[in-house]
Amino acid sequence: MTYNYFPGCSLKGLGRAYEESLLPVMRHLGVEMAELDDWNCCGATAYMSVDEHMACVLAARNLALAEKAGPQDLVTPCSACYLVLNKTKHYIKDSPEINATVQRGLGAIGLSFSGKTAVRHPLDVLVHDVGLDVIKEKVVRPLKGLKVAPYYGCQVVRPYATFDDAWNPTTMDRLLKTLGAEVVHYPLKTKCCGASLTGTVPEAGLRLTYILLKEAVRRGADVIATICPLCQFNLDAYHDQVEKRWGPARIPTVYFTQLMGLAFGLPVEQLGLNRNFVPMKPLPEVPAPA
């Protein structure tokens, strides 16, 4: 199984623990992730706020590079990248005006995009292509007793996700159960983490972060599992400011791929778990087989 891989800027920066856990997990399952040659920033929400046409052109270069690299699906772990690449595909298809701008830009550098390449999230690929049965076979260290709040955030399920429900997604819930974890009922699973507002307008942004943390604590979770680098950063790196404002809400937030790595028995030090502000407690020692 081979995919084209679009990491996005965050996975080389603040979200590097995501890549550090995603790639070994994929390798362990026999999935090859071929990083797209010379990919560029998807543009995220920021470029779309400045210039819609150019935002689509930028994102489309990656789609075109993927199409050139072969018929494999393009996998991207960051929610913003996932949304922007899918959105661009929709805009190219639906708006002749945007399509013309995009093709003119791509044509100038010898590229084109026909619209075929599918843009997918690793969660989708892991559960629907690899399969929970195959994942289950690889679990050597079940996450028994670990209570996990599954947090999906916004942009993977809204508005373009095709693999799960926009209101009550369950793909990660099922995956976590397969790893042996106890999945906590977490009704805020698709609520906004505050996105970049945590840094720019903390009064508003951090309040959203606080609500998510507090609710996970209240529901008895040991850890929050996330699928997005910005969600992870917001839920992990602002505890000082959040708790000073509104009171205790301490709980670690890790990537779902880190939990997979733990369950697969991959070396802990290779999963990027040391990059957390609020570290996850080590799993209890497994009694040595008699």
Partner: peptide, 19 residues
């Protein structure tokens, strides 16, 4: 800060291709 962030973000992408 939000519109300033958007503009700085776009400028960095245009110059470097990545953030």
């Amino acid at each position: 800060p939000i519109p300033i962030l958007a503009k700085e973000f776009a400028a960095m992408v245009r110059r470097k291709g990545r953030i």
